[in-house]
Write a protein that binds this DNA or RNA. Structure first.
Lengths: 156, 156
DNA sequence: TTGCAAAATGTTATGTTATAACATATTATT
DNA sequence: AATAATATGTTATAACATAACATTTTGCAA
């Protein structure tokens, strides 16, 4: 578990170096906060958790700035439908994804980052662009109930 | 134009009566505000515009409550990605839609409510539900550049 | 190595979006 | 008319986000 987080942080560091971005100590710690949480957090949650984890202050303002950086670097996503941030689940793999897709459980609030089939995505994209609209890289956020909560709700 | 708005208001009234919902004068005026705007507005924008249009006060708190009602009645949608509200574009037609889809232009901020093919939607839905996740009625909000802005940006 | 410019972070203030809690008014039902 | 339910008014405050400017740190050229 810790290994996974460490290797993600390592990978993030390497990737930033390669592209000339500065993954500073604080930025790295913000990313680590999200990786450790394993779930989406608000900017203010992050600032609070940061203080607890690292006994070091972080204003919400700074959290926002660091999140901006991490999002630009593709290391963090923002869930627009819940105003929360979460670490990209593909940091430690090679997987490149331009259109992240999230399944958000409205019961337990866990978020699963999935990869829809490229075929389906292409069809979706084509269907939209046929109307003359040009998609920017924008994510899908789909709400519902995850398998686990579904099972808990309707036992038997 | 005014006819379209009036007929939408009429239709909304009829539909609410039929289902036992109370589309009061204020609620109807909030809906009218959105229909007249023809674009998404924030709750505070609506309260402001309401005062201008009807020379009658409306607190933001009240606007939120009326928007909640109108959303429940299926007459208004909320754009979760921009915290704005807009009248459903299908009030005056028979079209029933459980999963609204929006194309949001990040340039001119116009919003187009589209209907993706049922085939494509079914495929998308199946693909997601195969993972064990149960979708609730959730809309798609896709950002990009509309045809008009696209043309303006790259002439010739 | 020093000095400068750019980037990052700190700090304070304020803007924007949304809800809580309780009071008052209106409406439907008996 | 009494009363219960619904709707609206009002005030306060929570939650999310950005602006503006000060200070510190870093990278780089002289």
């Amino acid at each position: 578990m810790t290994d996974k987080i460490d290797s993600s942080l390592q990978k993030a560091q390497t990737e930033c170096m390669r592209t000339g971005l500065r993954l500073t100590d604080k930025r790295s710690k913000v990313l680590k906060t999200l990786l450790q949480a394993g779930k989406p957090l608000s900017a203010y949650d992050i600032a609070d958790q940061f203080k607890v984890s690292f006994s070091e202050s972080l204003s919400a303002m700074s959290a926002y700035r660091m999140l901006d950086f991490l999002m630009q670097a593709g290391l963090v996503h923002k869930l627009e439908t819940s105003n929360q941030y979460l670490a990209c689940s593909h940091i430690s793999c090679e997987h490149k994804h331009e259109l992240p897709q999230f399944l958000i459980c409205d019961q337990c609030h866990t978020v699963q980052e999935i990869g829809l089939g490229t075929h389906l995505l292409k069809e979706l994209k084509d269907s939209i662009e046929n109307t003359g609209f040009t998609l920017s890289s924008q994510q899908l956020e789909l709400h519902g109930i995850c398998a686990k909560c579904r099972a808990d709700l309707s036992p038997q």
